[in-house]
């Protein structure tokens, strides 16, 4: 981290690839970017970056690529408001601004030798993807890897192709919320899929990202299956502007999520006020 430089100035980066993941009202696109000058940064899994569309503003987005991937940064973005819509309107070759990386990261060093279960919902697969692909890249350091992933409908599933390929490398449990004619896998919310598959808590770390309501019930159900608070990791989102603990916006009690988060173990998070 370059502490002497001006933290608020984004670095220019070129969009080298755009992939449409989901269309319609809850559109998601995945972007790959490269810094124009060789002045990028090295992130850790779980960290985020502030993306700028000049004239529109900034949005905090999880870096979904693994740090092992040196050629580009990847972001998967749900179209929500001003900035994310402007990002969805960009074309390959366009230049955006990026500053970061911000926040803490998943403590993967502490997880060596353990089995990892990734649990994602909707766009929450994006922040998971960085840690998941890092674990895959260092597979010998970990035990078994498994993924639970769910979306509202089959249309809303992100990383469809990557998920198919992933099935050759780890156990993948997919789900959608309501029945669809051609759907062969689980139907029901992600937390229920977990109860259905009953993973053993032995020597396991779980990492869960998704909508707050999903996270809440995932944690409840993991606890019901005997998982300890220290075995459950998640990420928190709060509205952010500065990303560096100055603008006073993203706090949960004493914590600034932009600096002290977004990654928390449930053992830590359960002691913080419900302010996210």
């Amino acid at each position: 981290m370059d502490h002497n430089s001006n933290s608020y100035i984004p670095k220019l980066a070129k969009i080298i690839e755009i992939k449409e993941e989901v269309g319609g009202a809850r559109a998601v696109k995945t972007f790959r970017t490269q810094f124009i000058e060789d002045n990028g940064f090295i992130h850790k899994p779980g960290q985020c970056a502030m993306l700028s569309v000049l004239g529109k503003g900034e949005a905090m987005i999880s870096i979904s690529s693994s740090p092992l991937e040196k050629d580009y940064l990847q972001f998967s973005i749900l179209k929500m408001g001003r900035v994310t819509s402007a990002l969805h309107e960009t074309q390959e070759g366009d230049v955006i601004g990026i500053r970061g990386p911000y926040g803490n990261s998943f403590p993967m060093e502490k997880w060596k030798g353990k089995n990892l279960i990734f649990i994602g919902g909707g766009i929450g697969l994006a922040p998971l993807w960085s840690v998941l692909s890092t674990a895959l890249g260092k597979k010998q350091e970990f035990g078994n890897l498994a993924l639970f992933y769910g979306a509202r409908t089959s249309q809303d599933v992100v990383f469809k192709q990557e998920l198919e390929e992933l099935k050759n490398k780890m156990t993948v449990h997919l789900s959608i919320d309501v029945e669809e004619p051609d759907w062969k896998e689980y139907v029901g919310f992600v937390p229920l899929n977990i109860l259905d598959k009953k993973p053993s808590p032995k020597n396991v770390i779980t990492i869960t990202c998704g909508p707050p309501i999903m996270i809440k019930f995932v944690i409840q159900n993991l606890q019901a299956l005997g998982f300890k608070d220290e075995q459950i990791y998640t990420t928190v989102e709060n509205k952010m502007k500065c990303g560096i603990g100055k603008c006073g916006r993203c706090n949960i009690g004493l914590h600034y999520v932009c600096k002290d988060g977004p990654v928390y173990s449930w053992a830590e998070l359960k002691n913080l006020p419900q302010e996210y």
Binding site: Y8, L54, G55, G57, K241, C242, K246, C247, G248, R249
Partner: peptide, 20 residues
């Protein structure tokens, strides 16, 4: 109190010109 907001002000949209 020190809380602040960050926004873009556009002075001209074509060609794009403004301030953060």
């Amino acid at each position: 109190c020190h809380c602040f907001d960050i926004n873009d002000e556009v002075h001209s949209s074509a060609p794009l010109k403004g301030q953060r």
